[in-house]
Design a protein around this nucleic acid. Structure first.
Length: 497
RNA sequence: GGGCCGUUAGCUCAGCAAGGCAGAGCACCGGACUUUUAAUCCGGGUGUCGUGGGUUCGAUCCCCACACGGCCCA
């Protein structure tokens, strides 16, 4: 068993305590982090700082490797900024050198002393004092190969972060993306808000909700599947520009780009339409790319994606015609279902269910025929009405709404409408969705939110709305292939026992 | 939901084709070593071979089921 590893460390822990040393002291004050210390020493060497700045420093970190040579030892101490080598010598430490016998890889150590450069040229803290600041009781993954096992990497993300240091950069990038979004929207006068996660109606997107129960109210509640309808209530309330970056929950499968909970940005801007939103999206994402990666041209899987505005704009109808030879207007909605459209899809090898709504078939056609070709950032415009019950009709184009989705690398990165603000039409659209649900036994359709309709009846200004899946955006900007590689704690099955 | 691949020491992986005492490197334990850096040298395997059945004199290996993970498809 691994107990022998733990038992060894328990013995060492006991010896440390027997010497009257607390292996878990409440705090450790360090002068600076490791990267800073190295920068300071380089400045001292360049004589741009006084030599005294390299003396009397306190540094700290996790021991990630040790090279012990009798009465001296080199330890690599890792903190968030990087690693620094510490030199422990019996000469300098005296009785304190005894501690070395009870140190293990994984322990956190504090060292005080002066920075030197060793014979081999490495900047090193020559320790006059060494203090254990937290004993590790389990062995860490191997130093050379790191931690490869994907399952352990996701289940014990901390080990992944310790052993595969470069993965930290993905999450740093993610943080920069999110803070960049806030900066961008705040600067444009948007108000960040929080809307309910526990909701009585799971509406605003096509998705199955998680169901929960509130004891005191003795009623069923859902976890939100979108923030859309609450943010629109705030537009009704008179906030001109609102956004929320929040977790939403969809009770669906888990795969390369789906996790049951994920982070969604939604924004709504009164008096704007989807053209304004398009401009905002290309501005925002090109800036995020530049801030997060250093350039608006990002290398993803061997190709360079250039987010510099303006992005290409294509019409959904024309793309479907061009890529699949299908004219949507020649395949109108029919009472008996999708009819002709379904036959055309089947002929193209696009697998559709026996009974599927026109919207779902179009969605599948787009996924199969069009979206894979949208490599460089592209807006696809003007979606069929039955795919978009919350979007406003496009003038002069019956059956279509003012909606776009943005794609890059074949992946959807944004979705936007000129929002429907006519309460009577909205009610009608909701009812049509309910009909579709009954007809096709399709659970993944919007549920009618009566309270939201009431809000809209008080008058909602014309509004441009936007949704961006943050996780997928981070995948794109960091070149990660799986959503679980941009989420710190992806959903996993429970292990037996 | 379907197909394929994987699960062996703390970690990274061999071994299984053709069933016969469980292997390596790192880590760890003991010893040497005061400028090393995948430190070096000497000595030491620390294991529920994912779980449960089956076949067999004998199963990590062959068969079945299940669990978990990955890839592809839906």
């Amino acid at each position: 068993m691994q107990d022998s590893f733990v038992a060894n460390r328990e013995t060492k822990l006991g010896r440390i305590r027997d010497r009257g040393i607390d292996p878990y002291p409440p705090r450790y004050r360090r002068t600076c982090d490791n990267a800073r210390a190295i920068a300071v020493f380089e400045a001292v060497e360049a004589e741009s700082r006084p030599a005294a700045d390299a003396e009397g420093l306190s540094l700290a970190g996790r021991i990630v490797s040790m090279r012990v040579m009798g009465r001296a030892a080199f330890l690599d101490l890792q903190d968030a900024s990087g690693s620094i080598q510490a030199l422990l010598r019996k000469n300098n430490l005296g009785d304190g050198f005894e501690l070395l016998k009870d140190l293990d890889i994984g322990d956190h150590l504090g060292v005080e002393g002066s920075l030197i450069r060793t014979r081999t040229g490495e900047i090193t803290l020559d320790a006059a004092r060494a203090v254990i600041i937290a004993k590790g009781m389990r062995p860490l993954p191997e130093k050379y190969h790191g931690l490869r096992d994907t399952e352990t990497r996701y289940r014990q993300r901390y080990l992944d972060l310790i052993a595969n240091r470069e993965n930290m950069d993905v999450f740093r990038l993610r943080s920069r993306v999110i803070s960049g979004i806030r900066r961008f929207l705040d600067a444009r006068g948007f108000l960040e808000v929080d809307t309910p996660v526990l909701v009585p109606v799971a509406a605003g997107a096509h998705a199955r909700p998680f169901i929960t129960h509130h004891n005191a109210l003795d009623r069923q509640l859902y976890l939100r599947i979108a923030t859309e309808l609450y943010l629109k209530r705030l537009i009704v309330g008179g906030f001109d520009k609102v956004y929320e970056i929040g977790r939403v929950f969809r009770n669906e499968g888990i795969d390369q780009d789906h996790n049951p909970e994920f982070t969604l940005l939604e924004s709504y801007e009164a008096y704007a339409d989807y053209n304004d939103v398009m401009e905002m999206v290309e501005q925002m994402i090109s800036r995020l790319a530049a801030e997060a990666t250093g350039s608006a041209q990002v290398a993803v899987g061997g190709q360079v994606i250039d987010f510099t505005p303006p992005w290409r704009r294509v019409s959904l109808r024309e793309e479907l015609q061009r890529r699949g030879g299908i004219d949507l207007d020649a395949c109108p909605p029919s009472e008996k279902g999708a009819g002709e459209l379904q036959r055309r899809a089947a002929a193209l090898g696009v697998d559709t269910g026996i009974r599927e709504s026109r919207g779902r078939i179009i969605d599948k056609l787009l996924s199969a025929l069009v979206e894979p070709h949208l490599t460089q950032p592209t807006f696809m415009l003007d979606y069929p009405e039955e795919m978009s019950p919350l979007a406003k009709a496009k003038p002069g184009a019956p059956g279509y709404v003012e909606r776009f989705e943005a794609f890059a690398c074949g992946m959807e990165i944004a979705n936007s409408y000129t929002e429907l603000n006519d309460p009577q039409t909205q009610r009608q659209r909701f009812e049509e969705q309910e009909d579709i649900r009954r007809l096709y036994q399709d659970e993944e359709v919007d549920r009618l939110d009566e309270d939201f309709l009431t809000a809209m009846e008080y008058g909602m200004p014309p509004t441009g709305g936007l949704g961006i899946g943050i996780d997928r955006l981070v995948m794109l900007l960091s070149g990660q292939r799986a959503i679980r590689d941009v989420m710190l704690f992806p959903q996993m099955r429970t292990l037996p026992g």
